[in-house]
Computed example of a mutant assay.
Amino acid sequence: MWVERHGTGWRIRELVGDKKVTIESGYQNKTAAKAAITRMKADRWRGDYIAPRAGRITLNAWIDAWWPSYAATLKPTTQRTEDSRVRNHIRPMLGDLPLDEVDALAIQQLVSRLASGDWPGRRKLTPKTIRNTHAILHKVLDAAVAQRYLRVNPAGSTGLPRVRRQEMRFLTTPEIGRLLAATPEHWVPLVTLLVATGLRYGEAVGLRVGRVDILAGRLEVLETLHDGIGGVPIFTDPKSDRSRRTVTFPATVGHTLAPLLVDKGRDELVFRDLDGKRAVTRNFRQRVWPRILADAGLGKVRLHDLRHTHVAHLISAGVPLTAISRRMGHASIAVTSDVYGHLLAEVDEGVMATVVGMLPAPPDGGNLGGLGTEDDRTRLTFTDLPAGKRTS
């Protein structure tokens, strides 16, 4: 904080983000303004400080001051999506309110209006989008609390709509055959790779020639490609540290990829758009992919469902979750378990068959002490066990 002359008096200023903000004004002389700064710093040290007049700063003004430094910490794609939510949802509905009027009720009304379609966009937003928008607002107000413009974050007690996990679609082996048969020749290598490796879409289209070893049957995931503004591709680090990984693939995939690597430099992209020059754009996801599904008669299948399909087939083959987690580049095995744990019951029969094979056959052929038929044994209870054979 510092003091400076303002008109006939003096005011207190502070740098917020990269913008100068007036904290308080109207002091008759420089000495009085400096004394006020001393009191403010003492209050801040004790944790009691709330900037004078800070609550009258509008939410829009606070976002303007705080956003540049925050945006600089984000990946380009995250920056674009979060800026869109602030610009389209938060600013139009709350931006003109002073900070001290952005209370719990105002935030709850924002959530309700986004859910009902009663906002300038005139459409109902999904629970996930609403929660993401609220999360950004929470960050904005957290920063205001840290700056001592607010005592508490009013977004901390908002009731939010529940997000239902989007249903996964798993393709069977015959369906995978239909999918590849319906895929135009130019796109067969890309779709084949997605099915055979479980790569994320951005990891696949961002793959460079020097990171594919056809003879060894493996590739390295070191970056991800995203659609930028104006169709300019943006390359970022993978989703997490464990997403930087080596993924193996069978010889059939190698044969499919080999023609795409010929006469290309190590830093060139493996996959190109139809013109052979540009990186794969959103045109594939938005226009080509729906036509492939229609021709294959598969209904609604997201590109990400090819990743789910890959995992489902690995689980059905009894591959351990630890190996699947490494192959998928999940941040931890807990992520793998949370997303795909419900599929494990489908392979339980195979697990039990393996366990049975480990043990010698019982001398009585599996009849539990002559206790009758299988239906009878199903109804067996603790008190039905013969004396001397009960267990605790």
Rank of each mutant, 00 (worst) to 15 (best):
K389E: 08
A71D: 15
T309K: 10
D273C: 05
G206R: 01
K139R: 14
D273P: 03
P290M: 03
P174T: 04
G117I: 10
L306T: 10
S84T: 15
I292R: 00
V356E: 15
I37L: 06
L59E: 03
L219K: 01
R242K: 07
S157F: 10
Q147V: 03
D96I: 12
I37N: 12
S325I: 05
A345Q: 12
G198A: 13
N367P: 05
V140M: 03
G318R: 07
L74S: 12
G117K: 10
G372D: 10
P76A: 02
D267A: 10
P363Q: 07
E349L: 04
K389N: 09
R13K: 13
K264P: 02
L125G: 00
P189Q: 11
P250T: 03
P92C: 07
D100P: 03
T73Y: 01
W119N: 05
A216P: 06
T77F: 12
L114M: 07
E101D: 06
L97Q: 04
R242F: 05
R53Y: 09
L225N: 06
R211D: 14
H134K: 01
P92M: 12
D305K: 05
V21M: 05
P320A: 09
K128S: 11
E268R: 09
I12H: 01
R379E: 14
R377P: 01
L298T: 07
S25F: 04
G228M: 11
T378I: 08
L160Y: 02
L105V: 14
T73K: 14
T383Q: 11
L207V: 15
I50P: 00
P362S: 11
V347N: 02
M358L: 13
P386F: 04
Q286N: 08
G370K: 13
G7F: 03
F271A: 06
K300M: 07
A115G: 11
I214Q: 07
Y70N: 15
R244S: 10
W10V: 02
G369H: 09
A334H: 09
T281W: 08
A33W: 04
W66A: 03
L321T: 02
Y49K: 06
G159P: 09
L260C: 04
T381C: 08
R326N: 12
D213N: 15
R326I: 06
G388Y: 12
A32E: 15
R80F: 15
K277E: 04
A71W: 03
G228R: 03
L97D: 04
A65Q: 13
N29A: 02
